[in-house]
Amino acid sequence: MDWNLIFTRAIEAGIGTEAVIYALAAIGLNIHFGYTGLLNFGQAGFLAVGAYGLATMIATFGMPFWVGIATGLLGAVVFALLLGIPTLRLRADYLAIVTIAAAEIVRLVVRSVALRDTFGGTDGLEAFSDDFYAMNPYSPGEYGIGPIGFDHRTMWVLTVGWVLVALACVLVYLVMNSPWGRVLKAIREDEDAVRSLGKNVFAYKMQALVFGGVVGALGGFLFALSRAATQPDLFSTEITFFAYTVLILGGAARVLGPVVGAAIFWLLLILVKTGMEEAVNNHVITFINVNQVGSINYMLVGVGLILLLIYRPQGIFGDKREIALDAR
């Protein structure tokens, strides 16, 4: 078995494109769920709106790159408003139902045959990332330390990605340690108490939904740009549930929870996957074939999440006492 390959791939995954995308998705969810208690099950929708806002403006309408970015961000704001206005006054579970459905609607709209000329149907869109890579300061080649390395395009995506993650973390840190963040955390605990103290709960929940959605859309930009293509089926509900796993793994309501969670999640996922593949190829494991590894890997994610919730519900950074307080 090639242990070198296994660990190299795992570490690359832990700091790679997927980790960045999921870190952003989970930072957004952390704002929604971790701090405000909003059960958003449609984070995939925010990523899709970001990705398609960008791709459609450039590939279909021939607009400049920054117009695409602005459209994606604005799209996320509008999507949050559309979700929030009817549901944020209702009980928490309504938001969960509506968001999961809305994210699916977004996916079905962009893959629809009727709008094929605009969104590209199931094939999706390409030819929107040239401007992005034209800004790449890395000259063509491989960059890395030892066996761990990325090509210049990936380096550019990762640089932009980790800078965005860092910025998002700084923003989250600042607002969550301010009176604004205090109102959000209080809403998570008991919104009626917050109302009785003169705060407009609806407005705060809406702001949280918009903020977290916009951060999610940043993840969508990177998702599309890193592949130089976007397809509707990349944005299935799976993204949302992985992002929740990442968030719980790292620790909800912690600034760095989603980031560390994303890195560890992808590191472990690829470690186990490559490990299994190597084991099968070298006949260490004989009862499965290489094509079954992927499915088994996802089963292990599920088992891992269950074990996590049982043995460490507070995640890596969380405080057990804080979780225990929830049982009033």
Binding site: V175, W180, G181, R182, A186, E189, A193, V194
Partner: peptide, 28 residues
């Protein structure tokens, strides 16, 4: 309705009105 996972002091501060830091942009 104590806000369980906020400290006693944070509970108290929340009660104050017209807080400048309760606006998202000023919070930054």
């Amino acid at each position: 309705k104590a806000l369980s996972r906020l400290t006693v002091m944070e509970n108290m501060r929340l009660g104050a009105q017209s807080q400048r830091g309760e606006n998202f942009f000023r919070a930054l």
